[in-house]
Amino acid sequence: MTTSFLEEQKDASHSPKTPSPRQGDGIGPTHIPKDEYMYIADSYHLIRRAIFIMAVCSSMFTNQLGLCNSLTTLEIIGESFGVTDPGKLSWAISGYGLTLGTFVLIGGRLGDEFGNKAIFIIGMGWLSLTSMMAGASVYSSYPVYILARVLQGLVPP
C-alpha cells in the first residue's frame, strides 16, 4: 500500500501532540531544564523562595491594612481634627479604597511594562511617603489628611 507525500503530511499535521512531561507527573525525567520553569520563583533556592513569598504576602496584608487601619480609629482621628460629621469622616476610609480600586489595573499594567520588582519598590516607597504625610497632617488640617489617604491608594504595593 503506497501513500502519497501529501497524505503523509496531512496525517502528521492532524496527529495529536502529547505535551512534554513536567516534573512530578511520573513520566520522563524529574529534572526540568532551567529555561522550562513556569515561574521565575521556581528557580530560586528554598530560603529565597520563602522570603519572596513572605514579601508578596506581607504586601497584600499591607494593602488590606490600608483599608482597615483608619476604620477602628476613625472617631479618634475625627476628634484630633475636630471633625464629628460622619459624612466627612467616611472619606478617611473611602478615599483610600476608591483610589485603590481605580488604579489597581493601571499599576498592574505598569508592572508588566517596567517590571514587577521596580513597581513594587516604587509602590512601597510611595506608600511610605504618603503615610508620613498622613501622620504629619495632624499638625495641619483634615483635608490634608484626606489628601494623604487618597494618595496612599494611588500606588498600592
Score class of each variant (00 low, 15 high):
F5D: 09
E8V: 03
Q9H: 09
Q9M: 09
K10Q: 15
D11F: 09
D11C: 01
D11R: 05
D11E: 14
A12R: 07
S13K: 13
H14Y: 10
H14L: 10
S15M: 09
P16G: 01
K17F: 08
K17Q: 13
P19H: 09
P19K: 09
S20R: 12
S20Y: 12
S20W: 11
Q23K: 11
Q23L: 07
Q23E: 14
D25S: 05
G26F: 06
G26A: 02
I27H: 11
I27Y: 13
G28L: 02
G28I: 03
P29A: 12
P29S: 15
P29D: 09
T30N: 13
T30L: 06
H31F: 10
I32M: 09
P33R: 04
K34E: 15
K34Y: 11
D35L: 00
D35C: 01
Y37N: 12
M38C: 06
Y39G: 02
I40F: 09
A41H: 13
D42A: 05
D42N: 07
D42P: 04
D42Y: 10
S43A: 12
S43C: 06
Y44F: 15
Y44K: 04
L46D: 05
R48C: 07
R48S: 13
R48D: 13
R49K: 15
I51Q: 08
I51Y: 13
I51T: 09
I51V: 13
F52V: 04
F52W: 14
I53A: 06
I53Y: 07
I53M: 10
M54A: 14
A55V: 10
A55S: 14
V56H: 05
V56S: 06
C57K: 02
C57T: 13
C57A: 14
C57W: 14
S58R: 06
S58Y: 05
S59G: 05
M60R: 01
M60C: 14
M60L: 14
F61W: 15
F61Q: 10
T62M: 08
T62K: 00
N63T: 10
Q64I: 09
G66C: 02
L67K: 08
L67S: 12
C68F: 15
C68H: 14
N69I: 04
L71D: 08
L71R: 08
T72Q: 10
T72Y: 15
T73L: 02
T73P: 00
E75K: 04
E75N: 09
E75G: 03
E75P: 00
I76P: 00
I76M: 04
I77N: 00
G78Q: 02
G78L: 03
E79I: 01
E79H: 04
S80G: 04
S80H: 12
F81K: 02
F81W: 08
F81Y: 15
G82S: 08
V83S: 00
V83Y: 02
T84V: 06
D85Y: 14
D85G: 04
G87R: 07
L89T: 08
L89E: 06
L89H: 11
W91D: 01
G95H: 03
G95W: 04
Y96C: 00
G97P: 07
L98Q: 15
T99I: 06
L100T: 14
L100H: 15
L100C: 11
G101C: 12
G101N: 14
T102W: 07
